[in-house]
């Protein structure tokens, strides 16, 4: 499990305050990401997640093939927390909101199908926002739930399916390198539903 900091949110100064030269940005809770590969029981895990089984800790399972860089996950989480604060979430929970935010469209079921765990998924990034239980306990619960091999987060880029990402985000042929792809992916997430 690796702790990843989220970028802070900007708090605009109130309109009636005199123009402050240094306003403040609010920090968000950390997220904790665990990467699994060679998953053998994706079907079971998926069913348990759908049922909301108590054996599944509070987390979101993201199909690692759809992730270009951990920054993509950070932005999805930041936006989910922002929308939670503002009371404008489009889905039922913070965790489904994270999956929804990864998508460039406003279709919730498409987002969950594309970015969540599916029957054929072999690598997932498990993301938790904040920590409800002692880390060791959470780790054990994940290990009993998922039959797979936990590996360091630095391996994340190895699972990126660039043609798939190209299809989902319509990055076109401009996205020659990873950096460009990431920029287009993050931009498409930010402009969700507003790009023709």
């Amino acid at each position: 499990m690796q702790t990843v900091k989220l970028p802070p949110l900007f708090t605009p100064p109130t309109p009636d305050s005199p123009v402050p030269s240094v306003p403040f940005a609010t920090p968000l809770p950390d997220i904790h990401v665990t990467l699994f590969r060679n998953i053998r029981n994706a079907v079971d895990v998926r069913n348990l997640v759908i049922k909301g089984d108590p054996r599944v800790p509070e987390c979101v399972l993201i199909n690692a093939a759809t992730i270009v860089d951990v920054f993509q996950i950070q932005m999805a989480c930041t936006k989910a927390l922002l929308h939670q604060q503002q009371g404008i979430m489009r889905t039922r929970s913070l965790y489904s909101e994270i999956l929804f935010n990864l998508s460039p469209t406003n279709n919730i079921s498409d987002a969950i199908r594309q970015f969540g765990i599916s029957d054929t998924t072999t690598a997932v990034a498990v993301v938790m926002v904040g920590m409800q239980a002692p880390p060791e306990e959470v780790r054990l619960r994940l290990l009993t739930l998922i039959e797979g091999e936990p590996i360091p987060l630095s391996h994340l880029p190895e699972f990126t399916d660039l043609p798939l990402i190209n299809r989902i985000y319509k990055t076109g042929n401009v996205a020659a390198d990873r950096g460009q792809t990431l920029a287009l992916v993050v931009g498409a997430m930010a402009l969700k539903g507003h790009l023709s």
Partner: peptide, 28 residues
């Protein structure tokens, strides 16, 4: 924000749009 993203997609370099917060009228 859409202009920035459309240009980027067409191969013109622009700042990457990180996030849009419409209730606060912010572009990150």
């Amino acid at each position: 924000a859409r202009c920035l993203q459309r240009l980027r997609r067409a191969g013109v370099d622009t700042p990457t749009v990180y996030m849009v917060d419409t209730p606060n009228s912010l572009i990150y």
